[in-house]
Amino acid sequence: MVVFACTGCGAVLTARVSQVALPDHAGQKYGHDLLPALLEPGTYAVDPGDGHPWQPWEVEAEGRGVFRQMYTLSGAPGRIGVAPGDVRRTMFIPERYGGCCCGWDGRYGPNLACAACECPVATRVDDCGFWQVVWLDPGAVRPVAVDGPACRVVGWEELREVHPGIPPIEQPGWWSLEWMAAIAVALAHLLAVSGGKRVIVPDGLVAEVLRRALDTLLPPGPPEQRLALTGPGLSAEITNIAMVPRHPQTGEVWPCSGEAVVPLAADVWTYLAFNDDRQLAQAAARMPADVRRDDSPPLLPNSLFRPDWKVFLRTLERLPLVGQPWLREIYDRVKDRRYTGSFL
């Protein structure tokens, strides 16, 4: 475990934290509600980033792993995300308050300073529509190893028990924002490995979250490829494309010998792989009162599933294959139809 300290004066600025993989929804912005914390208490994640907040496109961005022109580049390279409750001994910088709605969105740069030496050290983001997080400036802080129980890395065979999966539907019938981001990332990788050919997906929830987008973005008819869920606890299936889990702590992709591999966030993959999404039906017109179940009915979505288009575009921008004409055409089509719903 580590704490992060100010490079200027050495003051400890965080609680003890252990590293986890950066969530797919780290850069997600949605609606005008207040969203929860991006990271669990006691954890931190490193964002490779591609520039500085709200920085216009620059040519050298390709050297940072960005292969398509973006409206803005976001995030200092190597910034460190922690839960707001894990921050210690900091104070707000008054002149960095303005320009937001219900909180701070970080557009003016670091808004937290070390309380001991007053050097800017971090940017707190908690405005409406943003996942709440504090981004530590990698140039202003340094990790310091501390005594304490090391966070054990969960083995692949234990993944289902420790991470049973997150449901896709939230009250009162909205699709989970984490699902919208995770599926958007997987969709971008899936398109890249498809070679522009039609992809057949299994029926059920996998089809509900992927088929409409694939049918919209890829040409109909043969030749076609088949997608199957593959990973720990599932029997190996011969398929063109394997969708496998990405480890929530290390970020590693489950090893697979398939022709093409598409990573998916472990919490979403586990739900897709092992949850029985069949709906219960009443067996008879009348049910005796003494055996009537009082379970609440299952949550049903109140709309069709749509991957997060911003997360989808941001993922494609970082894939070298986006330079291929057919994939660049898909990217441009989605980007140009941002207000009309590209996945309808």
Results as ranks from 00 to 15, higher is better:
2 V>R: 04
4 F>T: 01
5 A>K: 09
7 T>N: 10
7 T>P: 02
8 G>T: 12
13 L>A: 03
14 T>D: 04
15 A>L: 09
18 S>V: 06
25 H>D: 04
26 A>R: 03
27 G>N: 04
28 Q>W: 05
30 Y>E: 11
30 Y>P: 00
31 G>I: 07
32 H>D: 13
42 G>H: 08
45 A>W: 05
47 D>K: 04
47 D>V: 10
47 D>M: 08
48 P>H: 11
53 P>N: 09
63 G>R: 15
63 G>C: 09
64 R>F: 13
65 G>D: 08
66 V>P: 00
66 V>R: 01
67 F>P: 04
70 M>P: 03
72 T>W: 13
77 P>G: 05
79 R>V: 09
80 I>V: 13
84 P>R: 06
84 P>C: 09
88 R>A: 10
93 I>F: 10
98 G>K: 12
103 G>I: 05
107 R>H: 14
115 A>D: 07
115 A>I: 10
120 P>C: 08
123 T>K: 04
125 V>L: 13
130 F>G: 00
133 V>Y: 01
133 V>H: 02
134 V>G: 00
135 W>Y: 13
137 D>V: 06
137 D>Q: 12
139 G>T: 10
141 V>G: 00
143 P>A: 10
145 A>Y: 08
149 P>S: 08
150 A>T: 10
150 A>D: 15
151 C>I: 07
155 G>I: 06
156 W>L: 03
157 E>F: 13
157 E>S: 15
159 L>V: 05
163 H>V: 12
165 G>E: 02
173 G>M: 07
175 W>R: 01
180 M>E: 09
180 M>L: 11
181 A>G: 03
185 V>T: 07
186 A>D: 03
194 S>V: 08
200 I>Q: 09
201 V>L: 06
209 V>M: 06
211 R>P: 02
213 A>E: 03
221 G>C: 08
223 P>E: 03
224 E>S: 14
225 Q>G: 04
225 Q>H: 12
226 R>E: 11
227 L>P: 00
229 L>H: 02
232 P>T: 07
233 G>C: 10
234 L>W: 05
235 S>L: 15
236 A>L: 14
237 E>L: 15
237 E>V: 15
239 T>W: 05
243 M>R: 02
245 P>M: 03
258 G>E: 06
258 G>F: 05
261 V>Y: 06
263 P>Y: 03
263 P>E: 03
267 D>I: 02
271 Y>C: 03
276 D>A: 12
278 R>M: 09
279 Q>A: 11
287 M>R: 14
287 M>D: 11
291 V>M: 14
292 R>D: 10
293 R>S: 14
297 P>F: 13
298 P>C: 12
300 L>W: 08
301 P>L: 10
305 F>G: 00
310 K>R: 15
310 K>P: 02
312 F>T: 00
313 L>R: 01
314 R>W: 10
315 T>A: 07
315 T>F: 07
317 E>D: 14
318 R>A: 05
325 P>R: 06
326 W>G: 01
327 L>T: 01
332 D>E: 14
337 R>I: 06
337 R>K: 12
339 Y>W: 14
342 S>F: 07
342 S>E: 04
343 F>K: 01
